[in-house]
């Protein structure tokens, strides 16, 4: 494909050669403008997803049903904040800053993963998010550890390790519930029923309709198509759900020996589009929570800046007096 950019032939050729030679592009390397823009969009969206993703589970911290679960959940939400930090830092290597990206999030001009616009009405949702949502995220993100942009790839290595831990914790929450009282078991099944289809939507629209896929594949930002990753995920959870002793709400789910994969039903892309456009159950609430935290903290951030400036002035005055 033809890459647009305004650089002289030398750097462009070097960039193309690095991409095709599977070398990592680093912040100081020349890169085409739309490679940079694509990465900023993707990394920012990913960072926003981490910090918005703190909310659906974060609202269970104060209600976690045992002290062990409470500790594990606090640690998980803390990890998500940490992932947000690595990713905003990775985005900053491309010449944008975190404050600017947060403003874009708060103004609704950059997106986050639509999955976090679904509610978490029961404790079992914490398990279902860990198993299905983190599971889908890992399936998407493991290939990103080999992404052509160095800072993003390196952030993903660490993130994937923590995410796979989260996924096991989610599975274990559901496993305990599925073997618990009838009410606990019903709670687990209900949560899986609600999160299954939205988790399949996390891989994005079908390949035939994916706006950004072609270019990202050529640049080795993306390695596998949306549909391939979705299939890989279904193949995994269709087996795991049996170990849980629960079911997936998909009458068309069946092993296809010929394809060597599970067949599965049609995703409701109208729902995906509606949630993406802001009409999901929690879109307004999630952004409002973020905006409120940011606005409530404005005086704190301002105080920290004012104190730092005063400290610098005092140090300069001491220096001048010597």
């Amino acid at each position: 494909m033809t890459l647009t950019g305004t650089a002289p032939a030398g750097p462009r050729q070097r960039f193309d050669a690095m991409i095709s030679g599977e070398e990592r592009i680093e912040p100081r390397d020349w890169m085409p403008d739309d490679y940079r823009a694509t990465l900023i969009r993707q990394i920012a969206q990913h960072a926003h997803s981490e910090i918005i993703g703190m909310q659906p589970e974060g609202n269970w911290i104060t209600r976690a049903p045992s002290l062990k679960r409470k500790a594990v959940l606090i640690a998980k939400v803390q990890d998500e904040a940490g992932h947000g930090l690595y990713l905003y830092s990775a985005a900053e290597t491309l010449g944008v800053d975190r404050a600017e990206l947060l403003d874009l999030l708060h103004e609704g001009r950059q997106r986050y993963s639509s999955i976090f616009n679904y509610p978490t009405p029961t404790w079992a949702d914490v398990g279902a998010i860990g198993w299905l949502v983190d599971g889908a995220a890992i399936t998407n993100q493991v290939p990103l550890c080999r992404c052509s942009y160095g800072p993003y790839a390196r952030a993903m290595v660490r993130i994937c390790k923590e995410e796979s831990f989260h996924q096991r914790q989610g599975f274990e929450i559901l496993h305990v519930l599925a073997r618990g009282t009838p009410r606990q078991r019903a709670m687990a099944q209900d949560a899986v029923d609600r999160w299954y289809w939205p988790s399949l939507m996390m891989f994005g629209p079908p390949d035939s309709e994916s706006a950004h896929s072609g270019k990202s594949m050529a640049w080795r930002i993306k390695r596998y198509s949306n549909d391939d990753l979705r299939q890989r995920f279904v193949d995994i959870i269709a087996e795991q759900v049996r170990a849980l002793g629960l079911t997936l709400p998909d009458p068309d789910l069946a092993w296809n020996a010929e394809r060597g994969h599970y067949d599965f039903g049609a995703v409701d892309w109208a729902e995906f589009t509606a949630v993406l456009k802001g009409d999901g159950p929690c879109n307004r609430q999630r952004i409002e929570h973020r905006r409120a935290a940011h606005a409530d903290g404005a005086w704190v951030r301002e105080a920290a800046r004012a104190h730092a400036a005063k400290q610098a002035d005092r140090a300069a005055a001491r220096e001048a007096a010597r």
Binding site: I51, M54, Q55, G58, N59, I61, T62, L67, K70, A71, I74, A75, V77, Q78, A81, G82, G84, L85, Y88, R98, H289, A292, A293, D296, G297, A298, V300, R301
Partner: peptide, 26 residues
Amino acid sequence: MAEVVTRAPQLEEDVALANIALDLLG
């Protein structure tokens, strides 16, 4: 302390306050 997590003035504080909450619970 854990009540503040997701509501801190900046991301670094979400991490720090969660850490403090975890220590206390521990």
